[in-house]
Design a protein around this nucleic acid. Sequence first.
DNA 1: CTGAAAGCGCTTACAG
DNA 2: CTGAAAGCGCTTACAG
Lengths: 323, 323
Amino acid sequence: MSIDKVAQLAGVSTATVSRVLNGNPGVKPATRDKVLAAIAACEYQPNLLARQLRTSRSRMLLVLVSSITNPFCAGVVRGIEEEAENQGYHILLCNSESRLHRESAYLQLLSGKVVDGVITMDAIDCLPGLTTLIGNAPWVQCGEGNTGYNASSVTIDNHAAAVSAIEYLSQKGYQRIAMISGDLRYLYSQQREAGYRAARGAAWQAVARADGLEYQAGYQAMAELFSGDEKPDAVFAISDSLAGGALHYAHERGLRVPDDVAVMGFDGVPFGAVTTPPLTTVQQPMHQLGVRSVQLLMARIDNPQSEPVDEILPWEIQRRGSA
Amino acid sequence: MSIDKVAQLAGVSTATVSRVLNGNPGVKPATRDKVLAAIAACEYQPNLLARQLRTSRSRMLLVLVSSITNPFCAGVVRGIEEEAENQGYHILLCNSESRLHRESAYLQLLSGKVVDGVITMDAIDCLPGLTTLIGNAPWVQCGEGNTGYNASSVTIDNHAAAVSAIEYLSQKGYQRIAMISGDLRYLYSQQREAGYRAARGAAWQAVARADGLEYQAGYQAMAELFSGDEKPDAVFAISDSLAGGALHYAHERGLRVPDDVAVMGFDGVPFGAVTTPPLTTVQQPMHQLGVRSVQLLMARIDNPQSEPVDEILPWEIQRRGSA
DNA sequence: CTGAAAGCGCTTACAG
DNA sequence: CTGAAAGCGCTTACAG
């Protein structure tokens, strides 16, 4: 079932078979039909590996996420897959769990020509060696805008969004606004926390850092915020998942949301619409983040000389019942 | 940066370079060192495509899931990735959204030798053409045990688990136990619904079919169950996500859970631990489902003549506050 | 419009 | 222990 068999069957050269396979216009209809018949007859399936080796184009993209269970990541990945499909690309998803070993194993596929480019959603700054593995291969950072690399990026303005979230809470009359922050190796954590501090200025502040991205971490951080003497009357969490854990803590302690304590999230993931009460949050354009990442990556693949671009997408505050 | 360059640099043949690259023992230490030095000197990176073409082994696995945002799928995928990594394999995740076009595009990678085998988590029965695309390639079904294919499978006993869930609710004293079922194209939906009906026997029954896998669908189904005259006092949902939507409906209507209505889920995904109240559910061995899928697939890859095996894993009822 | 031939970058019998 | 050579299955100038 190789191209040679087809050529034999059709009584033409392999070059001709290849031409009809690739839709090359310069083939006489009669011969094309002969070839097509032969292809059907022997149920020929092209060996993509050979094609990729020859053309040095795999039409595959590597996507590095820290956690696939993170609904924000999942939302972005959907956007990536959709646009990749439009462009005739397949994606190879690496759920790194931030494990260096696994990430570098996948990045080897880049230098090994198995993929044409990579989209990273992880904190790349603190993963030494990875950037050298990527080298000058087409690369876009999604959700993280670390500078100093030969990479494009697509993000939102995390600082501004955090400032705006705090202002929203202030306008609602909340006084003691605390924050559940996250892993500061991520640029977005730094930026959102900085936004919180900037917005608070000289006002009352309290920050608890969640250990991880899961609900449980949000629950713990909330407990920490409520362990002191001065309880917050509002909490701004760096992600909806963490906010979900915070809500759980509030319910468990009999705190009414938003009357006793308001909770505000970040991301705008689906489950935020069905929490009790539904979560007020900063809605990120997840789908569009994915779509634009692919488009910027394609630009780099098609023209490696082109300048990397840093794109910033809009966000909006989604008002629901929790704050 | 091909093997030829390295060979030249080291003053040996390409065969020798290949041998040290592959850890072939029959190489004189002195020459091995020369080669290693040359590899380092020119920062040689092997072209994996060429290697794969030559050896007809890609060490990549295709994983077809219907929805990556489904936390049950995500949990299984983590198990898959972990075991794949142990075996030196990479995975290619296809988030099909049950779209035939996308699934067949990915399955082409199978016939195209880009992947060595496939794990499907989707309802394959009703996707005509896909099974012929798979042909006799190494294949295992995970979570779905359709028979009649040349595939291994790993599942739980969905019927028994559903029966047991209903018995649990009965023993708790609930009388009018309803069910939120799902898409009957999935075998697991059929099996769990059949288990429900078998367990109820002549007792009061009500089934609402959720339209989709998201919270929202569970909310709608719950609304449907409560629209009639005879309200249920307990609801068994076919998945935790759907149960989450049901909980939301209950809260919205001021129904106390589990006093006014009990809610029981299925899957045992992480967020079930932080709902209000936490979700009583049937815990599936997600991680192990993934691990065993990979192992069974490896068996088929290493020995295509081996018989497919159908493996059934244990489940358990996870008691929490909602029922 | 079509074919003969080279080549993508590896690995692997086969000799020696 | 090492090398020359064939070959994996394609595509693509280059002729004609």
